[in-house]
């Protein structure tokens, strides 16, 4: 009886550990990342678009693709970076392929829709959930990210 109970407990613990690993791997695509960086782009200056992409690229060069988690949060005039027809879409695609997350601001999207008369068409790579600044606060205060604003 005790033996069966012990075996059952061990199985449950193993199952729980396995689930835990699975859950962790879902929560973080890069479990071995040494750094977590959130890059903010909110500037109308088009040069900043190039700059923020360069910084993301340089961070990956420095820490390795698996060594750094990068999320680029675009809001305000900076959301133009994530327009579907942006001239930098090739670079954005390449960075996304190597694990860089792109997130747009839902408030900015709504405001731009008012000015345009229709919602802006965004790059399908971009996730748009909630205000961009709230996303930055969450990443910095709850998930240990460092904010960099090139």
């Amino acid at each position: 009886m005790f033996k069966i109970a012990a075996k059952g407990s061990a199985l449950l613990i193993a199952l729980a550990m396995t689930l835990g690993v699975v859950q962790n791997s879902v929560a973080a695509d890069k479990p071995f990342a040494q750094k977590k960086i959130v890059l903010q782009i909110s500037d109308p200056n088009p040069f900043k678009q190039t700059l923020v992409l360069n910084v993301a690229n340089n961070l990956q060069k420095e820490y390795g693709v698996d060594g750094v988690e990068i999320e680029i949060v675009a809001f305000g005039p900076g959301l133009r970076l994530l327009f579907a027809d942006n001239a930098n879409k090739g670079r954005i695609q390449a960075l996304a392929s190597s694990g860089v997350e792109f997130r747009g601001c839902s408030n900015t999207k709504k405001n731009m829709a008012k000015k345009l008369g229709h919602p802006p068409v965004l790059n399908p790579i971009a996730k748009v959930e909630g205000p961009g600044v709230v996303r930055i606060v969450k990443l910095v205060t709850e998930e240990g990210y460092t904010l960099v604003k090139p």
């Binding site: 027809d85 001239a87 930098n88």
Partner: peptide, 8 residues
Amino acid sequence: EPSSAAGR
């Protein structure tokens, strides 16, 4: 101009 990447 570069699409969505030019200034005002």
